[in-house]
Design a protein around this nucleic acid. Sequence first.
DNA 1: GGGATGGTTCGGCCGATACCGAATCGATCA
DNA 2: TGATCGATTCGGTATCGGCCGAACCATCCC
Lengths: 236, 236
Amino acid sequence: MSNLATFAEVAALAGDLARAGMLRALMDGRALTASELARVAGVTPQTASGHISRMATAGLVSVEKQGRHRYHRLASPIVAQMLETIMQVASGPGATRSPLVVGPRDAALRLARTCYDHLAGRLGVALADALIEHGYLELTSDGGLVTEEGVKFFARLGIEIDGLTLRSRKPSARILCRPCLDWSERRHHIAGKIGAAMCAYAFEKGWIRRIDETRAVAITPTGERIFRETFRLQLN
Amino acid sequence: MSNLATFAEVAALAGDLARAGMLRALMDGRALTASELARVAGVTPQTASGHISRMATAGLVSVEKQGRHRYHRLASPIVAQMLETIMQVASGPGATRSPLVVGPRDAALRLARTCYDHLAGRLGVALADALIEHGYLELTSDGGLVTEEGVKFFARLGIEIDGLTLRSRKPSARILCRPCLDWSERRHHIAGKIGAAMCAYAFEKGWIRRIDETRAVAITPTGERIFRETFRLQLN
DNA sequence: GGGATGGTTCGGCCGATACCGAATCGATCA
DNA sequence: TGATCGATTCGGTATCGGCCGAACCATCCC
């Protein structure tokens, strides 16, 4: 087959608790140093170094030297998608719904966070709901579609994709979004190109900002207004 | 998080060579007995039994008792999609393109096979190419779309989805296909609802049939004609 | 019931690997 | 140039988990 050994190797890499922690930390698309990865994984730097080099040779993460630091990030969106998909399976009906104490930081994560390059959490799900509600977007389990009204809506906002405004494309000819199951909400939110573009735009316009360089994001007063008035969504 | 331990558990389950072999064997959507799984994995029945029970409690496979046999299948399409995605990462640029001797059975697999519930191999890729070529289908990395012409084409053939003919649906409102990277061709073929429907239809009409109860399928003379004349594709 | 077949449980062996301490390499800064 | 900090390499230990042999349970058939 497509080399079963390689398949097992990749899965096994994600199957170690320490490495899984590192990969999860990289899920937001940012690059982290080896020591940061060691810290999030709860292991010593030398152990982390070994893990990282294995993941790098397997093509899971890419390394970029910068002075005496080494920045690591997920090698490609495919890897992020793989991790998401494994999460979906792990969150499935078989998963033991452990009550699990929810700390304040976890609460922030549940409210809004980045998921590789797009938005997730209550914000992400509510955004998806609102866009679908108003007929700007349609989602199925297999893919998604921006409607003609959606094209106009995004164009009005000035959201660009691949350097082109949506307006310049044939409306029905492009699939730009992909549903992505949310682990905290267990509902779909918007990934794919449109998801990434919306997320980037929200950061750029100051609607949201990162909390302490984590995956969690806070909604700014401006964002609060925009999300309520323009997107007509209410978080609670 | 969405319980990191559960995530690692799932990945680790796929990360063992014997279990990976079993999962691969189940990828075509059929149900296999414990002994069959033991054989494909190259382990003794008692070892296989342990593997199976672990995968069952984790929600990767489901078990169905039938007399003194136990039939195992992938617990859900999500699991199949996870395996596919891991394959994609494993087939990535980092993968050692081992020349790997190709046996006759492997050759059949490369020509045409099922991939969970849809068609893959040269046939699957050629089919996707032809449908896109004639404007019946559009694919991107994030999803796919059946065009209006495609809707008419499938309706003419009589292919139904979810019990409804495609005709009865609004053309642009449904995304029914999902690209799925082919490990042998390294190109996309058609998964999702439309992929599953086409595959089932091809079996039903006798265009293709299974070879020795494996994933490999043979193209019948009828199928040969249909694929050439109706779908206008040439395999070689 | 007795035999055959599919499947599972138990116990012990053993190889793989995650982990850390200590030492080393490389780059930055005083 | 020495000091510092990030990162890696090496060696040794301990644990985890895959594997099989043997025994046991369940179902079907004669």
